[in-house]
Every structure is written in structure tokens, then in C-alpha cells.
Design a binder for these strands. Sequence first.
DNA 1: TACATAAAAATTGTATACATTTTTTTATTT
DNA 2: AAATAAAAAAATGTATACAATTTTTATGTA
Lengths: 205, 205
Amino acid sequence: MYGSERSRSASHQSYEMLRDKILNGELQGGTKIVEEKIAAELGVSRTPIRESIRKLEYEGLIVNKRVVKPTEKDLRNMFQVRILLEGYSAQCAASYIKEKELEELLACVEIGRNGEVEEIMKANERFHEIIVQSSNNPVMIDIIDRMQSTIYLFRKTVVFYNRPHLIDEHEQIYEAIKERDGQKAEQLMKSHLQADLEFCLHLIG
Amino acid sequence: MYGSERSRSASHQSYEMLRDKILNGELQGGTKIVEEKIAAELGVSRTPIRESIRKLEYEGLIVNKRVVKPTEKDLRNMFQVRILLEGYSAQCAASYIKEKELEELLACVEIGRNGEVEEIMKANERFHEIIVQSSNNPVMIDIIDRMQSTIYLFRKTVVFYNRPHLIDEHEQIYEAIKERDGQKAEQLMKSHLQADLEFCLHLIG
DNA sequence: TACATAAAAATTGTATACATTTTTTTATTT
DNA sequence: AAATAAAAAAATGTATACAATTTTTATGTA
């Protein structure tokens, strides 16, 4: 259904193009973003480009007309928030998650063990996504989402590693949720994310 | 110093004007926002108006070209996040707050007891602000800030009441922080905000 | 060389005009 | 009278032009 979707507005196309280029590193941190240059590149006027840039500014991917270059401190700050919100989401999930999602969590763990690199990465992202969604709180989901791109940007270089124990930790979280033990699920999620942060900082710093 | 500040760009002026009108109720929830109308009102072109509208959209004050009309569910969702983040901030404050800020917290409590209505309202806001700031986490501060306007919008009609025990609760939180008891401060902050939410919902629903 | 300053260039902010889409109104049919 | 389609109007999206600002470069001086 989605595949056949009509192409959206110029500003939206520009937004997606810029975001992708930032996330995949084609536009490196610190690069100056000049409206006219982007406009020429896409063959449109500056007007829609400006809107797309504003949007990326609100998302934190562009700061002061430059591609963001998140510092360690930025990453720590985001993770601090993420740990609080995803930890809480895990607790909610233990109470509210449905059988279907529970099965999908398990599937993610299994792909994490036996899948191809690309699959594994997707499954790991999906694992967190399912839990966050199950908070059933659009405000919370939104906040986590918005931080996601900057976090991804920071750990770009790390992402092809697979941290030791990562899948084991996912499995433990899954078990806790399955047993409907909210406290445990929250605690496990928090230390999982903490370990993730530290691995990330260690590799880079 | 700030008083004599140069007037900012048209889009920023427009942003402030619209935001204020929304917050003080001059533009009611559900009101359609039409670019040309606003532009004519301010005597500028649509271009800067569009930017200001986008900004308000990101802040959640405009949704689908209409002034937002937050539902009870929205308020609950925001408070859920706010309780997590401000609770945590209170914990941090217990560890890190400086003498000067502690004194200011106490001053807020005292104004809450003896001040004029306007002063009290300001002091109560300031009380929370100090604690949030002391988290020392710009990401966290930003998120709380962004929710603030929508929360304010919702409780506009409530704001001139002063909930019973509100100041007592502030004082207890202050005491816990002063005693450097992070767990207690967090717990007190959480129930304080929970009570606030319920008072608000009760008055309106 | 290092620093300040003026001129030039580049970039962003805003106005206006037109194209496209969405909403409202009106007309038509059942 | 209700439902539908066609037409008109309104509103938004985009392009272009110009004004204001910021950044860069060139130039002169200590």
C-alpha cells in the first residue's frame, strides 16, 4: 500500500533527502547548509528548502545552519532521558503488551541470534520500537522518536558492531515482560541502555 | 539590558504574537489559523507568518492549521512524561543544587504563603523551573519546556485557583532537597505533580 | 606578522505573483 | 430533503525578485 504512495511536496522531499544524507554521513557533522545550494541540487526554489531545514532544526539534526556534531555530553544527555522514558515504557509493556507483540519481541531476539547483519540491526531497532509503542503514550513515543535520529547519527560508526550480550539482554527483557514483572523489565531496560551508552562512548572516545 | 533589546525578525514577532494570543485565550482552541489573515493583521507578508506557524506546530500549539484543543488524554500523557522527568530532576537537584538556588526555592515557598496572587503564580512556576534547571540536562529542560505551553493552555481556567496543600508540598520538596535526600525528593515531586494533574482534571471534567 | 577596517560577495529574510490543492458554495438529481 | 457533482472561492505551496544581514576578502596601518 505504502509503496504506491504519491510523491509528496517539494519541502517534504527535500526534508527526506537532507535527513538521509545527514544520517548516512554523506553530509558530515559541521557541514554548512546553504539554502541555494540545496535548492539547485534538487531543482526547486529556496522556499520549500527553508521549510525542510527548519524541520531538521527542530529535530536537532541541523544547528546554526550546520549539520549537527553531537558531543559526548549531548549523547549522555539524550540517553539520560531515553533511559527514563524507555525504562518506564518497559514497565508499561509488562502490564499492557498483547500476545501478538510479545511474539514479535521474541522473533526479534531470534533474528538477533540467527539473522544476517542487516536483519539483526533492523530487529534490534524493532525490539525497542515495540516496547516504546506499548507505552501507548504518543507524547512519550514522539520524544523518543525525535532523539532517535541524533543518537543514530552519533553511533553511526558503531552500528555495525554488535555489542556483546546485547541479544542476551534483549532476551532477559523479553522474559521479564512475558512474566509481567514490570519492575524487573524496567530495571533490565535501564541497565541495557546504560551499557549501550557506555559501549558507544568507549568505542568513540 | 533585555528591555532595550532590538526588535527581532518579523517571523519571530509573529511567533510571539500568535503564541501569546493562544495562551491568553484570545485565540481559542479550534480556531482556524489562516496565513493571510495573520499577515494582514501584522502588516507583513505570508512568508514570515508561515515560519511562525511551523514553529507553533512543532511546539504543539497549532495542529492541522487550528489552535490546539488538548484533551484530557493529552494532558495525562504529558503529565506522565513530566512526572518522570521532573521527578528525576528533583533527585538530581538533591545532589547538585547550590546554596543560592536552595535559597531561591525557599523564597518561592515564602512568597507562596505571603505573596499576592500574581506573585504566587510566578513563584510557583519558578520553583519548578529551578529544580528542572538543576538537572543540568538541556535535552531534559527543553522537553519539559516544550510541554509547558500546552499544559498551561489546558489549565488556563484553573490557574487562578490555588490548590490546597500546593505550597506545603513545595515546602516538603524543598526540605528533602535541602537534606540531600534524592529518593525522597523524587517521590515527593512525583506525588505533587500527580495531585496537580488530578486537581486540574477534576476542575475541568 | 598581526590587527583593524572597508569593500565585496554570499547568504538569509521578506514581499509578491502565480500554481496547485482544499474547502465551500451552488446547482442538479433522485 | 438528502445526496451528489460541478463550479467558485479560499487557502496553501512554490517560484522569483529584491532588501537586509552576515561572512569573506582585500587593503591599509601599527
